[in-house]
């Protein structure tokens, strides 16, 4: 066995990324540079952070549709408190993170204890967070707080004349942390077990309730953090920020090779899934004649291919069992 079956989806993902990046490099001048690579991270930092949280949810066999709305709510709360009420960012940021976590925790508890499908609960959460934005304000709130603007403008120079933003560094740290949590902690392994079989997890004596609620808490926390990073990026709070973002996030996770039915996948895959989305956007912008909606079509196509690939692999899997 030259290539272990369990690595097929993630290898496909990484190869796809490399292929796309190489193709772009040959086709467009100025594509092959460290800065383009860095820009992938800078422009998709918040996507990466959200996708990391979503990876845990999907690995546990659930789904979280509320992420985009929580991002919007985070930008809104930050902007409102900092700008309109003059609070210090040092207070606001932890508060926003806490809010995201509490929101996720609430949804997780409802999902677990009342056995309602995650899809519908997080849908309600999505409505609620989006609506709360408008309770705060209908209009955009621009932020000119010095802390936010300085974070937004800081460029950390890298060797070779390229640079990276603080947001991108936060995203990388989160991704690294998530890889550790997923593979080297009991919580991480319990998430995989839960996604593999909830009943078995119960019978093996694993803390199913705690794990499930924590997974949604984590996703809420990540979304809130993504919201803060998004605030750095946009320097505004707005109720229409990140509309439809949950789909991009789910797509990134699936293209990263995570099984939508749960239990199989890697956070590292999600990382490359996010990069693939970034590369598609970059190629389309380099192409110039192609319009932005091709991004959606290509992502939809990739989703289809990956879902079908998973289906075929898992069909083999069950035939192996016979």
């Amino acid at each position: 066995m030259s290539l272990n079956r369990k690595y097929i989806p993630i290898v496909v993902t990484i190869l796809l990324f490399l292929l796309m990046f190489t193709a772009g490099s040959f086709r467009y001048t100025g594509f092959f540079s460290l800065q383009v690579l860095m820009n992938l991270l800078i422009d998709n930092a918040f996507l990466l952070i959200t996708a990391v949280g979503m990876s845990f949810v999907i690995l546990s066999g659930g789904i979280d549709l509320s992420v985009g709305s929580i991002i919007a709510l985070s930008t809104m709360v930050s902007a409102s408190l900092v700008q309109q009420h003059g609070w210090s960012p040092a207070v606001v940021i932890p508060l926003v993170l806490l809010m995201g976590a509490a929101f996720g925790c609430g949804m997780g508890a409802i999902i677990h204890y009342f056995k309602i499908q995650p899809f519908i609960v997080t849908l309600a959460g999505m409505f609620m967070a989006r609506g709360l934005c408008y309770v705060i304000s209908i209009d955009t709130i621009t932020i000119d707080n010095p802390f936010y603007t300085s974070v937004a403008q800081t460029k950390i120079a890298l060797p070779g004349g390229s640079f990276i933003s603080i947001s991108a560094i936060i995203a990388l740290i989160i991704a690294a942390l998530a890889i550790f949590i997923a593979h080297y902690t009991r919580f991480g392994r319990n998430v995989y077990a839960l996604g593999g079989s909830e009943q078995s997890s119960l019978l093996m004596g694993l803390p199913v309730a705690r794990t499930k609620v924590l997974v949604y808490t984590l996703s809420g926390l990540c979304s809130a953090l993504a919201g803060i990073v998004f605030t750095f990026y946009m320097l505004s709070g707005y109720g229409l920020h990140a509309v439809g973002f949950e789909l991009d996030t789910i797509a990134a996770v699936v293209i990263g090779g995570t099984l939508l039915t749960g239990g199989v996948g890697y956070v590292l895959g999600t990382f490359f899934g996010v990069l693939i989305q970034g590369v598609i956007q970059t190629i389309i912008s380099f192409e110039g004649t192609l319009s932005s909606w091709w991004t959606k079509i290509v992502i939809g196509l990739l989703l289809f291919v990956f879902i079908l690939l998973q289906r075929v692999l898992s069909a083999n899997r069950s035939s192996l069992k016979q």
Binding site: I110, Y113, F114, K115, I116, I120, V121, L123, A124, G125, M126, F127, M128, R130, G131, L132, C133, Y134, V135, I138, G239
Partner: peptide, 22 residues
């Protein structure tokens, strides 16, 4: 836009009523 908040409560309420566990 605040309709959304109301809708979210309606979704939750209806689902909770339908939930055996609840």
């Amino acid at each position: 836009e605040i309709t959304l908040v109301v809708k979210s409560f309606v979704v939750l309420a209806v689902c909770l009523i339908q939930s055996d566990s609840f």
